[in-house]
Write a protein that binds this DNA or RNA. Sequence first.
DNA 1: CGGCATCCACCCCGATACTG
DNA 2: CAGTATCGGGGTGGATGCCG
Lengths: 109, 109
Amino acid sequence: MSKRYTPVSAAADVEAALRLLEGRWKLVILFHLFGGKVLRFSDLERAIPGITQKMLGQQLKALEADGIVHRQAYPQVPPKVEYRLTIWGQALCPALDAILKWADQRAEA
Amino acid sequence: MSKRYTPVSAAADVEAALRLLEGRWKLVILFHLFGGKVLRFSDLERAIPGITQKMLGQQLKALEADGIVHRQAYPQVPPKVEYRLTIWGQALCPALDAILKWADQRAEA
DNA sequence: CGGCATCCACCCCGATACTG
DNA sequence: CAGTATCGGGGTGGATGCCG
């Protein structure tokens, strides 16, 4: 443990972490990468009907910069790029799973 | 089970559920109500340094309308209003807890 | 104390078009 | 296929002031 805890700093840490997941699309994207799935750009585009190319690219770049998503490009024609969760991203899986369960409960009612 | 499941509808349900938690402040507020805590308006205001009264009131109203937070007003002078999670809101606790753990992991590193 | 009203800046996000 | 460029509208959120 490299850090001391106080209620205050814990709250600040949570807020900082939440910033990384904010926005209209981030969690939606992560849900589709959930479970170790590896998807191409166009896969995600098809999996998320409402999203535009701009937002998908923009959010993926942000998630990559924050170390949550790993981007692997194959230098070939036509281009091929795969996205998957990093280790840090996979650490989010329990949270994603819990949210999924909550969504299911709401959908049932 | 009152609903049939397909990958598509499951994704739609998740997206719908995420809409309820979107925005700059919703999850932050819920974190402070986490664990069955009952807080007054001014308690939340103090607990979340960056927030304005407008946003706090606005987001609390939205959370109340979505059945996640319960609002109890005591008709007295000066006014006293308490906020707590509803049953649906408490169903979010596992998710909040998982996100908290993730935040802790990041903070340690 | 616990709001609401107003005004306003920003930037998020969408639509469209273009590129390697 | 996998993006970027540009433009523009609207909603989110901040500051301030007023009210029961």
